[in-house]
Design a protein around this nucleic acid. Structure first.
Lengths: 124, 124
DNA sequence: CCTTGCATGTCGGAATATCCGACACTATAT
DNA sequence: ATATAGTGTCGGATATTCCGACATGCAAGG
């Protein structure tokens, strides 16, 4: 089996997980592939392939599926939902920062980097 | 310009918006198309097309771009326009700050106050 | 057991999109 | 004007999606 199907094996696993989440969400709502495919205006077999991780999902398609399935886009992509919504005090800080000039914001960003480095924490 | 390029004119507008957000986020970080394209393992001209709304963005590609650009996936799809009414760069700054300790955030808040006072800007 | 119906999976060729190099365009700098 | 950097655009080769036809799996009924 060569790469007649999908280019990167790297993506294979992630695509499969995405497809599984989409299938779960569809079944949870009791919808048929045919119905969802019609909603997306793609062939039914296209949705079959999506749910089996054998076809790419366009960002716009995912957005519409998320609306249909009443979930966030981040849920399907596996995005960390905790980090998706900011902690309360960070949101507060953001509001305090919103009326600063762009230049001051940049300086504040550098200071944030400094703090992160000093504490040795943080992510790349 | 017929639809030799992309099938649905419906999606054209949404794709353009997505591309614009992606371009803004890239420029905000001072990255070149070439660098981001290498990160995604797609040709540079592919990213050109994406940012001009002339090429589909796969959900997985968007997920990786969101990580690189330190934004939520929903930000690019337009999902959280309602939830976060903050300017893009402020939201980005907040994200950068989210992994700091509470103590560091407090210190950062004081620094924000200092900047505001120094610039003679807005109110607390 | 044999059908029937329904939902989903699979195959192949046609239709469509992406890739990728080559070149064009626009600044900026010398 | 020349050189460089970053980005846009074109065309043919390559890869993916579409779409119909057929296959599979499963459940209910005769």
């Amino acid at each position: 089996m060569t790469n007649l199907a999908l280019r990167h094996e790297d993506d294979e696993e992630e695509r499969r997980r995405l497809g599984e989440r989409l299938r779960e969400a569809r079944k949870y709502l009791g919808l048929k592939q045919e119905e969802v495919a019609a909603y997306l205006k793609i062939p039914r077999t296209g949705l079959t392939d999506i749910e089996n991780g054998q076809r790419r999902v366009e960002a716009i398609e995912l957005t519409r599926l998320a609306r249909l399935y009443r979930q966030s886009v981040g849920y399907f992509t596996g995005e960390d939902q905790a980090s998706s919504s900011l902690p309360a005090d960070v949101a507060h800080l953001a509001r305090r920062v919103a009326d600063l000039s762009a230049q001051d914001r940049e300086e504040l960003g550098r200071f944030a980097d400094y703090l992160r480095a000093r504490s040795g924490g943080g992510q790349g």
